[in-house]
Computed example of a mutant assay.
Amino acid sequence: MVPNPSGALWSPPPIAPMLAVPGPLPVPDSGWAFETKWDGVRCILSTTGDGSVRLASRAGNDITVAYPELRALGSELRGHGVVLDGELVVLDASGRSDFGRLQSRMGVVDARRAGRLALDCPAHFMIFDVLYLDGHALLDSSYGERREVLSALGPAGAHWSAPSYVHGRGAQVWDVVVREGLEGVVAKRLSSPYTPGARSAHWRKTKRVETLDVVIGGWTQRRGAAAGVPGSVLVGVAGPAGLRYAGSVGSGMSEREQSQLAAYFAVIARSTSPFADPVEVTGAHWVEPRLVAEVSASEWTRAGRLRHPVWQRLRPDLTRLD
């Protein structure tokens, strides 16, 4: 292990990641750094300088065994006691993070299985902060200073990198994110210290969402409400074989909208599913596919489902109740 200034052997301390608050892009933006928001799993990586590494999840759980391809980063950092903050992702052929593929890597505790998955679905560690270096805490240093230290370390390999940030020009960064279909932007004050475990206004995340029209083909009962009041709706989009199931949407719906939908559902109820593909939802009730709703979502999953869907409104201009 790397000696600390007192001569004792240094062990990396446990660190809870600093978190961003959701919000719009900061204006003015001259004092801010802008990074791509990666759709992955937060990770704290630490090494004592002897070539070994330890990976910890946001909750502090040891996840080292699940990602054997990152062991080589310990060799690259040999001689340095380092704590790094970043995001574990799996990249698709276009270089975008694919959370659906990453899910196959999560929670693996068998080393052999983890090794096979590392070959079939390799992870990549996107490093965006350094918290300790050679026993010295950098938590009180500014974000800009910490990024200079990270740049000097220069971690770069097949399974890890330290993507650069853009100083100011938040609107231009946002345009690129939208154009490339990335998840969003994280803005960080260049002067901000690192506050472990805190959700700080010095870091701000802005997510890109897609808005689309979907057809309601079913619903599930709202828990604790009168019979017939929906807690979520089962929605679909047009596909080659008919209405293709796209997922369940409940977040964002007001009580007034739930009551309105309950009245509609009583009129257009049916006994069978209107979806062309199977829908494995317990307690599903079916309706004629006449109601159209506007929803937002962060992306489509590999299974063809909406990820993080949020109800926006019913589209009476597109709805057929006759």
Results as ranks from 00 to 15, higher is better:
N4W: 02
L9Q: 12
L9P: 00
S11Q: 15
M18K: 07
L19M: 13
L19H: 05
P24R: 12
P26L: 07
E35W: 03
W38N: 06
D39Y: 03
G40K: 05
V41N: 11
V41I: 12
V41F: 14
R42E: 08
I44S: 03
L45I: 04
L45P: 00
L45Y: 01
L55F: 03
A56G: 01
A56I: 00
T64A: 05
T64R: 06
Y67A: 01
G81H: 02
V83D: 04
D85Q: 11
D92Q: 08
D92I: 05
R96N: 14
S97L: 02
F99W: 10
F99K: 12
A111T: 09
R112T: 14
A114F: 09
G115T: 04
A118Q: 09
A118W: 07
P122F: 12
M126D: 10
L131Y: 01
L131C: 02
G135C: 06
G135S: 08
H136G: 03
A137P: 15
A137V: 05
L138F: 06
L138H: 05
L138V: 07
L139W: 06
D140I: 00
D140R: 13
S141N: 14
S142V: 08
Y143A: 13
E148I: 07
P155K: 06
G157D: 07
A158N: 09
A158T: 14
H159I: 03
W160Q: 02
H167F: 11
G168Y: 08
R169N: 12
A171Q: 14
W174K: 07
V176Q: 13
G181I: 07
E183I: 08
G184N: 08
V186P: 13
S191T: 15
S192R: 05
T195C: 10
A198M: 12
H202T: 13
W203H: 04
W203Y: 08
W203V: 01
R204A: 04
T211S: 15
L212C: 11
D213H: 14
D213A: 15
G217N: 05
G228C: 07
G231H: 06
V233E: 09
G239M: 05
A241L: 14
G242V: 02
G247T: 09
S251W: 07
S254F: 07
E255K: 04
R256I: 07
R256N: 14
A262M: 11
Y264E: 10
R270I: 12
T272I: 10
P274S: 12
P274E: 12
P278G: 11
V281F: 06
T282P: 02
W286L: 12
R290N: 08
R290Y: 01
V295A: 02
T301N: 10
T301W: 02
A303T: 13
P309S: 02
P316H: 02
D317N: 09
